[in-house]
């Protein structure tokens, strides 16, 4: 489903150029949740950005369901992200003046889905994630754990084939973090999706089927 082959990423120019990701190859199958762990600055987020079509590798390829991302232009990558991928970000990036429900529906509207369908699906997801009482609230009224659950609902709205999560527990306490990761696992692996979880926390990574360790841009073991 997700195949990365010999990914290489150099950031910066000239004397300031740094190799952030070096010769990384990996594969994630349907129903599998993998974790990428590593210390700060090891290249986890850079790797996730390439896997999620947020940035392009300097070298190497990423294929999602057989589609080579390097064949897509900016518009194509945007469409891919909105329709086939789901993101749970460390900063949920919710729109402050929209309600929780509207923020989730927004992902459907960006993907071009009819609003009524998106609303129905949003209600289902918010209920499934225990947020039905919060759907009319604005993000400012929610706790960190709730915000991440909203982000998860938004990520799942368009039934993505892959869910990518970037440090989803970084701003949460241990209990909230465990709850969010459990929900993430349930809604990816449990529903036949592929999942990639980036974290620096080994206990969070423990929920994954496999853990890849990234050190100085290279995979240490698997």
């Amino acid at each position: 489903m997700l195949v990365a082959d010999r990914l290489h990423k150099v950031v910066g120019d000239g004397a300031l150029a740094v190799t952030a990701v070096d010769e990384v190859s990996l594969q994630v199958e349907r129903g599998e949740l993998i974790a990428i762990v590593g210390p700060s600055g090891s290249g986890k987020s850079t790797l996730l950005a390439m896997l999620g079509a947020l940035s392009t590798p300097t070298d190497g390829t990423v294929r999602i369901d057989g589609v080579d991302l390097s064949d897509l232009d900016e518009r194509g990558r945007s469409e891919l992200r909105s329709r086939r991928l789901g993101f749970v970000l460390q900063r949920p990036a919710l729109v402050p003046f929209l309600t929780v429900s509207e923020n989730v529906v927004l992902a459907g509207q960006i993907a071009g889905r009819p609003k009524s369908m998106a609303s129905e699906r949003a209600d289902q997801l918010l209920t499934a994630l225990g947020l039905e009482d919060r759907s009319g609230h604005r993000p400012a009224a929610l706790s960190g754990g709730e915000l991440q659950r909203v982000a998860l609902a938004r990520a799942l709205l368009n039934d993505p084939v892959i869910v990518l999560a970037d440090e989803p527990t970084a701003n949460l306490d241990a209990q909230q973090g465990r709850a969010v990761v459990a929900l993430l696992a349930e809604h990816t692996r449990g529903q036949g999706r592929a999942g990639v979880l980036v974290t620096h926390d080994e206990s969070v990574a423990a929920v994954a089927d496999r853990t890849l360790r990234l050190i100085d841009g290279r995979l240490a073991d698997s």
Partner: peptide, 15 residues
């Protein structure tokens, strides 16, 4: 930051 997040979830430059 918010716009970067929206772009990440697929919002195009047009939006």
């Amino acid at each position: 930051a918010r716009n970067a997040g929206l772009r990440a979830i697929g919002a195009g430059t047009d939006v």
